[in-house]
Amino acid sequence: MPDEPRPDIRLTGVSKSFGAPGREVPAVAPLDLRLAGGSMTALVGPSGCGKSTLLRLIAGLERPSSGEIRIGDESPDDLRKRAALSVAFQDAALLPWRTVAGNVALGRSLARRPRDAGAVSELIELVGLSGFEAQRPAELSGGMRQRAAIARAMASAPELLLLDEPFGALDELTRDRLNAELPPLWEAHGATSVLVTHSVAEAVRLSDRILVLTPRPARIAADIAVDLPRPRDAVVLGSEAFRETCGQVSAALREGQAPGRLAAQ
């Protein structure tokens, strides 16, 4: 499967506004963008700037107000129809009546993959939820729910993986462990991934490219390539190049944000 090179994602003039006609609130300004197939792109930017919206546009969950998104010669809808993408939602979106195992298995069944209890428990183990298979979401902590959501997103072995702050609620240690263990999985499968995160270090550590967005409506403030070797082990993370890239991203973030102004509603 991974042999075939993944197609690029191309956004041409894509914008998105919300609200009633006449009182539109622009969330994403017209964007032209190309994300290389099989790469990992990180989106960083202030809260409310439009990151999730951009992700949902790529997933085909929102219609762009203008412009077009193509993944190779397919539209996001085509990809969804083939169950070739998956999303780890910012708020986990676990179904409360299903157990952890049930929610992870749902990622397979929704994607019309055959049942595979082994694969499911492997993923659960990977995200450190072994022993909680039979628990329901209401009985989990916030971070555990996020981990279950990540496992579910990966359960269908998607071609396009969209992660919306998947590690937002995790402690430093767990986050670190997942940051180390998940990327090889994605790489092995050759998925094109887009990751929204608020952690600069995480963005640098995980991605090939970082897009820094301005406050709403989202524009690209900086487009930073991450030229670090993989696997990004302790050596890489301790390197000067790593720190430099982080500084670059932080500076771009600060620059993009006008002083004293938050991305307000």
């Binding site: 085909g60 969950l61 990809l79 993408l85 998956s86 979106a93 179904l95 929704l110 994607a111």
Partner: peptide
């Protein structure tokens, strides 16, 4: 049901 659960289903093209 919240929008998110429907998005989940939609994200798999179902």
């Amino acid at each position: 049901a919240p929008q998110g659960w429907f998005d989940l289903v939609r994200s798999y093209g179902r």
